[in-house]
Write a protein that binds this DNA or RNA. Structure first.
Lengths: 132, 132
DNA sequence: CTGCATGCAAACCGTTTGCATCCCC
DNA sequence: GGGGATGCAAACGGTTTGCATGCAG
């Protein structure tokens, strides 16, 4: 396991604090309140490193930015197609999907992810809201 | 429906020609063989426009680049985690997923997509291949 | 003739990287 | 003292956009 520097610890703490799935720069803003001199590069480097070490999840979702998740158990997500926000979807993970997919491909399958798209509660309220 | 300019027509033809799911710049290279003076901006603009009009699919998959698909029927995909290549997965689309997800979220759900990840046949052959 | 579409280049945005300094073992 | 980690800023890759010109209706 990797060394737990102050920066890594605080990044991890801030990520664990929220149920949303922040982007790197959202996280950067959160962390900067406690470590004002931290660099954006450090945030990116450490998120990448922690994802490689299975400490966090890097979400490979649609949209322009990567998002991060302190919950490493396999689960599904929903992304707001207006504002880009991502939330968890609490339905059981269907492992059998991988088995049936394996029959139809010559890829060596490693995993799967289900991503729902929709309009989040906030964007439903405001009729002409932000984009992504 | 939008006007079918020469550029749009050729972009659409080239996209339909392949079973892969090319990125904008891959498509740019393909189209340039027939329209050497076309600009990359035109390709992007028209792909976006045709996706909005339901003529093609913009794939919101993981990885760094967007990919496009001339097949507009709902289907699932697999992405090679080494080279980024994307292929179709021919298993039935599970519409009931949306219904069960609806119970666990206050989003207004619009759709869903299943993305498998794995190693494509080419990357399986070469043991230390390219990344993505 | 008028307006949308194009080619071109510059701008943009998210992410990565090189480098000098710093800090911990 | 040495090696990894950091802050900073520049570079990068993919995408978007402004603008002058071109072309079809």
């Amino acid at each position: 396991m990797i060394r737990l520097t102050t920066q890594r610890q605080i990044i991890l703490e801030e990520l664990s604090k929220v149920k949303t799935h922040p982007t790197a720069s959202e996280l950067y803003d959160m962390v900067r309140k406690r470590l004002p001199r931290i660099g954006l590069g450090t945030v990116y480097r450490n998120l990448e490193l922690m994802a490689e070490n299975g400490m966090i999840l890097k979400l490979e979702v649609g949209g322009t930015q990567k998002r991060f998740d302190a919950t490493t158990e396999d689960h599904y997500h929903i992304r707001c197609s207006r504002c880009g926000r991502v939330d968890d979807i609490d339905i059981p993970v269907i492992d059998s999907l991988v088995e049936s997919a394996a029959k139809s491909t010559s890829y060596q399958i490693l995993g799967h992810h289900v991503e729902f798209t929709g309009i989040c509660p906030d964007c439903q309220k405001s009729s002409r809201p932000g984009l992504q």
